[in-house]
Design a binder for these strands. Structure first.
Lengths: 339, 339
DNA sequence: ACTTGGCACTCGGGAACACAGAGTGCTAGA
DNA sequence: TCTAGCACTCTGTGTTCCCGAGTGCCAAGT
């Protein structure tokens, strides 16, 4: 059905359309990519490709434009991820190396990715549940209030102010802190609920109300942050990239954490470290027709911490974009593993 | 030069133009606002106003449009800040009350403000230098690394991982922590450099290298974060508000922390708690012609912590916007003061 | 069985043009 | 000082027309 030449034609159409943003006709195609066949032949192939739904024409007597299905085939079988240039690699490295804390890493990453791809970059903060506890701190503020600080191995810090049901002396707080740390240090956040379950019983009865309050806040912190923080950058690139229509919808989606989350995460089930590409209508979110998402997981080794990616018009340069996303994910993973 | 009726005409022009987004002509004006004079008279007044530079016409035989100078006069003398409705007040209150930590307060505030004004909201994180130290924590990670955590009275938490020049026992770390806390607790961040200046000399000689390292990181944290964090929300509102041209520039400005900072802060010198309005070209930043900024300081009592505001097209509804900004600033200040 | 050249057909987009309508400036009169 | 009337000047819109890019199809060539 689709012989090699037809595939070559499809590839050529995608490449041309991506670079010119104009429907591409048979003549120009036959010239630019030396296909060694006549425009008429190309037309026949195009007709076949259109029949199969890989390309379409905006109106009669205009050139052809790839459909989502066409891009899909291109990404899956006709393109190779393009590695970054040496200069780009070095730029990434030095730019990310300067980060001072987790916030900074994420901020720098998202900017870097936006600049590199000239599209909108999206980065999810490392997921809490897969990280481990590095330290728990209880800081007395007044005699009825303490601040709970939870530090994870990824450098993330969560804090909450807790109102205690009764006055608790500082020494008791200190004791509780010691117990908590000995109990939780190094444990995965997912295990915390189990580990602290019997804690109240192991402590003096008079402390139990306070302990219960503190623990409930601690657990709350864990589940609450399960819906994670996401940041984006490079919105200005949308305005440039001949988007115009639907721009409002895209911006709205970007500011809606939940939507963004779903977009990044939807395909993370099987092999999180693989690049996932969702093209146009595959996104199943109205208003994001016309945009594609290239995403991947990042994190040290096999425990993927979170995801990052870029969002741009369906007519993006997939090989380059995929190369950039993959490279950035790797570098960030390195940075996080090292710290 | 400008009698009362001319001012009334200007006010009417601004109001009409803001609500219709179309140049307003003499006839429509005389009808809609019962000025009790004929269109011809209005035309005369318009001619005078144009002479003075308060309004302009896009082209001959079109209606008039306010200039930046016209908006300025309107804001300064012809309008009254419009208070929010009771329902809006309650909405703000309940929405902000649910915040769990500083991050959450800021995030909610910026979203709230964006939604309330239907424009781009900008919020600066509370400034470190004006807050006070609530607690300093040193958490041993390995024998050569500690994590420094700085907690301020606004609930802000800064952390840094420090590589020590030599192995330091946990007990010494604990001692140092105690000293630091007794020394800094409750002090303004601005005073920290002075307060810790002679600290190394007051400690055992063998600890000095480690102490020096820790202090340098601490001080670094203070100055580094002096250029503050800023967040924005509601970019989608730009796309809606008949902006079209220059949108890219605006988005770029929004993502440029430094620029944003300057825009918010530029007029904060005299009375920080007052509303400041910068209209169009007053912003002196190319690409932000066509946008106005309404900002104000927030924070408990007389020590203003930071600034927040909104950014929108010059043809915005100033009375309403100003009302919303002022109200939100007040509520946020309350929330911060309470926690 | 493909490929190719030729040819008629279709449509979008730009240029030229006319025209209605809104809005103005000016002048003369109340 | 305000008002009414009037001539004038624009923009925006609709119409028409035409060019050209691009297509689909057919018949001939390899």
């Amino acid at each position: 059905m689709l012989d090699d030449r037809k595939l070559a034609v499809l590839r050529a159409i995608v490449e041309d359309y991506v670079s010119t943003n104009e429907p591409v006709g048979s003549k120009a195609l036959a010239e630019r990519h030396n296909l060694k066949v006549s425009p008429a032949t190309v037309r026949n192939d195009m007709a076949a490709l259109e029949e199969e739904g890989y390309i379409t024409q905006p109106h009669t007597s205009a050139g052809r434009v790839p459909t989502d299905k066409g891009y899909r085939l291109f990404v899956d079988r006709l393109s190779q991820i393009k590695p970054l240039s040496g200069a780009e690699r070095r730029a990434i490295e030095t730019f990310l190396a300067g980060a001072v804390d987790l916030d900074d890493v994420v901020t720098r990453t998202v900017r870097l990715l936006a600049q590199l791809t000239r599209q909108v970059a999206v980065v999810q903060y490392p997921t809490l549940t897969r990280s481990t506890v590095r330290h728990v701190e209880l800081v007395p503020l007044t005699e009825r209030r303490v601040m709970l600080v939870l530090i994870t191995n990824t450098g993330r810090v969560e804090q909450r102010v807790i109102e205690l049901p009764e006055v608790v002396e500082d020494t008791r707080i200190a004791h509780l802190r010691a117990v908590l740390n000995s109990c939780l240090d190094g444990c995965g956040l997912g295990n915390v609920p189990d580990l602290v379950a019997d804690l109240p019983e192991r402590l003096p009865a008079e402390d139990r109300p306070a302990v219960a309050t503190i623990l409930s806040v601690l657990l709350e912190t864990l589940v609450e942050r399960h819906d994670e923080k996401i940041v984006f950058a490079g919105a200005a690139n949308l305005a440039g990239a001949g988007f115009s229509v639907g721009l409002r919808d895209v911006l709205e989606a970007l500011e809606e954490q939940v939507v963004l989350m779903r977009l990044l995460g939807e395909t993370s089930t099987d092999t999180p470290s693989a690049l996932t590409v969702r093209i146009g209508s595959e996104n199943a979110y109205t208003g994001l027709r016309g945009t594609s998402i290239v995403a991947t997981g990042y994190g040290s080794g096999d425990n993927q911490l979170a995801r990052l990616g870029v969002l741009g018009p369906t007519r993006m340069d997939y090989p380059v974009t995929m190369g950039a996303v993959r490279a950035v994910a790797r570098y960030v993973s390195q940075i996080l593993a090292a710290s």
